[in-house]
Structure formats: structure tokens, C-alpha cells
């Protein structure tokens, strides 16, 4: 099998219809002028022409913002538990139109959540989901993936990776799973020519050059600079500006901290154990029994997220955990720009 095939945009609509028959399809859709990843039922809903990133990253389709881990019932001094994992298993899904930065974020989450311990809810959803990526033709002003080693090219982590070449898509096959999809739809694909493959390379080079117009250090190698400046003045400044709202955590494709609590029914006879996304910017995040809070000062909480991205990630999984998507910059009400922070740290 060739590594590269092409499909016309007309035929892609046919492919979408077929995928909708075989998978639950998640794809970019436009709502009120913004792009979301969403379950779709009609090819007409899908927007594969969007610029930059989706408003929210794909993590919620693997690690939802609210997840019931199990339910319980208490009857006459007995407790019965009902595992919700079974409901997660077995779903066959296709995630379409996901950017290389976000593909990288899933690879990072894999390393964290499927390691010595395995998060079974996340792992089951990952197992059942086909990843069909889409490279950027036009980054937005927040994109900096070229500096985090996570774009605009994707080096892995996808089953298929599409590039928009105008009237057709060049498709790179990244796995056996992806190859099977192509094989099952051979009437829609044809082998790519050398020119088409080159066209993609040119396109990605152009996108990379555009992203590199901003001057940033190589963010995969800022560990030492950050380590040296843990107590630097600038963190006090960021601490003063940060509103501790947690938006950066929610839109970050690799932030996965969570809280766990019980939601009982009114009479207490049953209930559910729920996990929800949490934020290291919240005061409650490090509060232990008895009331002590380990990160009571805001600078320490601002630092927790940024250091987790550029240093602790390296300690934890051997690479930085920022993919340069720029979403945290886009949503920060205080205008905190993680790129600028990293650049300032390197220049200290």
C-alpha cells in the first residue's frame, strides 16, 4: 500500500457518509461563528475549512469534563456498586479534522494516563477511536506549534492525516487501522503523485515559516532556564495579573487534573461517583484535611501550570507538555501569554 493517497473533496463527502454509517463521527462544526469538535450526523455539518484551532481541544472526547465512574446503591446496610466502564467500552468512533498539535496532545495524554497505572475510561475511548487528522493551511495569531515540536507536521499519532490541496485532500496513512479505511473505500482514493506529496511539503513549510515569523526560543529546551528562574520576580507579576479562573486549564489539550466527588440522591439511598476537570489555579486544589493549602499564593499556582508544561512534563514523561496550540492565550481574561512568559524566562 502507498503511504500517500488522494481523495477529491466530492469523494470525501461520500467517504464521510460511509464513515457515518460505521462510526460515531466527531468532526469540526461551526456554531455561532466558532469551531467546535462535535458529534455529527450529516456531512453538511462538517467544516473542514476552518483556520487555526477548534475552540476546545479533543481531550473531552476521551476524558470528559464530567464523568460518572460508577454508581452505588445502599440498601439495608448493604452497598452495591455498578461500574460505568462497560458503557464506555466498545464504542466505535472516528475523530475527524483534528490538528497536528491536538494529535500530539493525545500522544502526551497517552503517556500520562496509560503508564504504570492505566486510566481505563481514557484507554477504552482511545482504543475505540479512529484519528483522522487535518494539517493547517492557515495558522492563527496564537499558534506556535513550530516552537514546541508539535506541528505543523504530525510525526505520528494519527490513523490518517489529511492536507487540503484545494480541490482534493492528500491523505497520509499512519497506521494499519487507517490503511483498512482506505482499503475499504478504494473506489474513492487513488495513489498520490510525487507532485502532490511535494505540494503538501511546500504547504507545511509555508505554514511553518508563517508561525516562525514570531520570535520565540525552542520551547522543547527551556528546562534549564525555567529551573534557574523559579523564584524570579516576573512570577510575582504574573501572579498579580492571574484571576485564577482556570480557563487556561479547561482549554488546554494536555491539562487533565481532576477532582472526584460523590453525588448522592436526595434520600441518600443511591448516588454516583463523579470526576470533573479541576484547575491547579484554584485555591482548593492543594487543600488537605485540616485546611492547609500548599499553594496559597497565586504566583505559585500560575507557575504550577507553566512549569508543568515546560519542566515537570520532561521529568514525568520525557517531553514538554505544551503543544503550542495557543488556546490558553486566546481565552485568558488577564492577557497572560505563555509564549511571552517563556521567552522572558529564557531572556532573564
Amino acid at each position: 500500500m502507498e503511504r500517500f493517497v488522494v481523495i477529491t473533496k466530492e469523494d470525501f463527502t461520500v467517504l464521510l457518509e460511509r464513515l457515518l454509517g460505521a462510526y460515531q463521527v466527531i468532526a469540526p462544526v461551526e456554531r455561532e461563528g466558532r469551531i467546535f469538535l462535535s458529534y455529527v450526523s450529516d456531512p453538511a455539518e462538517v467544516n473542514m475549512e476552518y483556520k487555526g484551532t477548534t475552540l476546545l481541544p479533543p481531550k473531552r472526547f476521551f476524558f470528559p469534563e464530567v464523568e460518572v465512574l460508577f454508581t452505588y446503591r445502599v440498601t439495608g446496610g448493604r452497598v452495591e456498586l455498578y461500574d460505568k466502564l462497560e458503557e464506555v467500552r466498545g464504542a466505535k468512533r472516528a475523530l475527524l479534522g483534528v490538528r497536528p498539535c491536538d494529535i500530539k496532545s493525545l500522544e502526551i495524554l497517552d503517556k500520562v494516563l496509560i503508564g504504570e497505572y492505566k486510566d481505563p475510561y481514557y484507554a477504552a475511548r482511545r482504543d475505540g477511536t479512529l484519528i483522522v487528522g487535518l494539517t493547517c493551511n492557515e495558522p492563527d495569531e496564537y499558534c506556535f506549534c513550530a516552537f514546541t515540536g508539535s506541528g505543523p507536521q504530525a510525526s505520528g499519532g494519527f490513523d490518517l492525516l489529511m492536507t487540503d490541496l484545494g480541490d482534493r485532500y492528500l491523505v497520509e496513512i499512519g497506521s494499519d487501522k487507517g490503511e483498512r479505511v482506505v482499503n475499504l473505500n478504494l473506489d474513492l482514493f487513488k495513489p498520490a503523485s510525487k507532485d502532490e506529496v511535494n505540494e503538501r511539503e511546500e504547504m507545511l513549510k509555508r505554514v511553518e515559516a508563517e508561525i516562525r515569523r514570531q520570535e520565540l526560543p525552542d520551547l522543547t529546551k527551556v528546562y534549564e532556564a525555567f529551573a534557574k528562574n523559579f523564584d524570579a520576580e516576573l512570577w510575582l507579576e504574573y501572579g498579580r495579573r492571574c484571576l485564577a479562573c482556570g480557563k487556561c486549564n479547561y482549554v488546554c489539550p494536555t491539562c487533565r487534573c481532576f477532582d472526584v466527588y460523590d453525588e448522592p440522591s436526595l434520600d441518600g439511598s443511591s448516588g454516583k461517583r463523579v470526576r470533573v476537570w479541576d484547575s491547579c489555579h484554584f485555591l482548593s486544589f492543594t487543600r488537605v484535611a485540616g485546611g492547609k493549602v500548599f499553594r496559597s499564593e497565586r504566583p505559585s499556582r500560575v507557575k504550577q501550570r507553566i512549569y508543568h508544561k515546560y519542566c515537570y512534563g520532561v521529568d514525568e514523561i520525557g517531553e514538554i507538555e505544551c503543544v503550542g496550540c495557543g488556546r490558553c492565550i486566546k481565552v485568558c481574561p488577564a492577557g497572560i501569554d505563555i509564549r511571552e512568559a517563556a521567552k522572558r524566562v529564557v531572556e532573564l
Binding site: 494516563l113 497505572y117 486510566d119 487534573c257 481532576f258 472526584v260 479541576d278 491547579c280 492543594t286 515537570y312
Partner: peptide, 20 residues
């Protein structure tokens, strides 16, 4: 050491100190 530990498996993030 005492920290908030929700999951016990290094996922929930509350007990993190540096990279540990």
C-alpha cells in the same frame, strides 16, 4: 509527605511537587 491525593495513581494532579 502529606498532600491532597484523589486518585492514588498519579493522574489527578493534586499531590504534585515538582515533577513528582
Amino acid at each position: 509527605l502529606e498532600r491532597l491525593m484523589k486518585c492514588g495513581m498519579g493522574f489527578c494532579g493534586h499531590c504534585m511537587i515538582g515533577g513528582k
